[in-house]
């Protein structure tokens, strides 16, 4: 298979574009896609300081690498989720990447912040692990951005993440989520801007980029996400994509084109409260993150009382 651009030996074929690329031309294609996303959705400028949420996986490390190559000011933020060896490897690979590229990295621990790991939070609060993880990340990313003087939080969500999430939201007509499903969410009060610069690129393209750039990332799947619904939706989307290449991007980009028509008259609703525990913006008197934190603390107190009696 030959590269569509230079006719050299191809290393990746992209059926959705009916194209194959050699490493150099693939790099140009991928950088161009990221730049297009940043430009189209006015995600940030060279004057912004960007907090890159880095998990140690292929997408977030590749995103950090790309933004650094494009000359943006970045600070990495890693949240240690306390998931045994998986989290240990994630922290290690993130630190190694930062060191290798001379990048600034800030690491926080969920166990220190909440008093429990993702698995324990899920048990104590009866939430799915991915939900407990998501709530904690959103809260702590925002807090870190403000503390570290960053105007934007960038995450490594890719086209597969967004298309599968869209499928789930449509299947359950989650209007509230559909309204906010956007590669760039503006800042609102104390909530900083959130962007997804990889939303034009597939999971396979990001893995290929990480491999070709020699990025050492965590290949193993998060042990907490084994039965996650999103993986099921991804599987369905990939089956459709195999039969009809290009459907995934048509589905997601088509939604973005039409979304403003569906939700045209709706104003963005800023959180009406300030959490009485942490003073973060909140839709309720106590924010979801603090409710989790307080529930974990109460459960531990109850356990102490039971043990003593």
């Amino acid at each position: 298979m030959k590269c569509r651009v230079c006719r050299g030996k191809a290393v990746i074929d992209l059926p959705r574009h009916n194209a194959s690329f050699c490493p150099a031309c693939f790099d140009s294609y991928l950088m161009d896609q990221v730049w297009k996303a940043i430009d189209e959705f006015e995600m940030f400028s060279k004057n912004d300081r960007i907090l890159v949420a880095v998990s140690g996986g292929k997408d977030s490390l590749a995103l950090w690498d790309i933004l650094n190559r494009l000359g943006y000011h970045t600070t990495g933020f890693h949240l240690d989720l306390g998931i045994g060896g998986y989290s240990g490897e994630s922290v290690e690979k993130t630190r190694a990447f930062a060191l290798r590229h001379g990048l600034s990295l800030h690491v926080e621990s969920l166990v220190q912040e909440v008093g429990a790991s993702v698995a324990n939070i899920a048990d104590l609060t009866n939430r799915p692990p991915c939900s407990a993880c998501g709530v904690s990340k959103r809260h702590l990313f925002n807090r870190a951005a403000k503390t570290l003087d960053c105007q934007v939080v960038a995450t490594g969500h890719n086209l597969d993440d967004e298309a599968s999430r869209l499928l789930g939201n449509i299947l359950h007509w989650q209007d509230g989520y559909l309204e906010k499903q956007d590669p760039a969410l503006p800042d609102e009060g104390d909530l900083v801007r959130k962007v997804k610069p990889l939303s034009r690129l597939t999971e396979k393209e990001m893995a290929a980029y990480a491999f070709l750039k020699g990025i050492d990332y965590v290949v193993h799947e998060c042990p907490m996400s084994v039965n996650a619904k999103q993986l099921f939706y991804k599987k369905i989307m990939n089956q459709v994509e195999q039969e009809s290449p290009g459907t995934k991007q048509a589905f997601y980009f088509g939604f973005l084109d039409r979304r403003r028509r569906f939700y045209a008259d709706k104003e963005e609703e800023a959180p009406a409260h300030v959490c009485r525990e942490c003073q973060s913006p909140s839709y309720t008197e106590v924010c979801t993150f603090c409710r989790i934190r307080l529930k974990v603390a109460r459960s531990e107190q109850d356990q102490d009382v039971t043990t003593r009696s």
């Binding site: 996986g57 799915p128 998501g134 993440d161 396979k204 990001m206 998060c222 907490m224 996650a228 999103q230």
Partner: peptide, 9 residues
Amino acid sequence: RPVISGGSR
């Protein structure tokens, strides 16, 4: 090398 990752984010 499988490339799929993610939970209900």
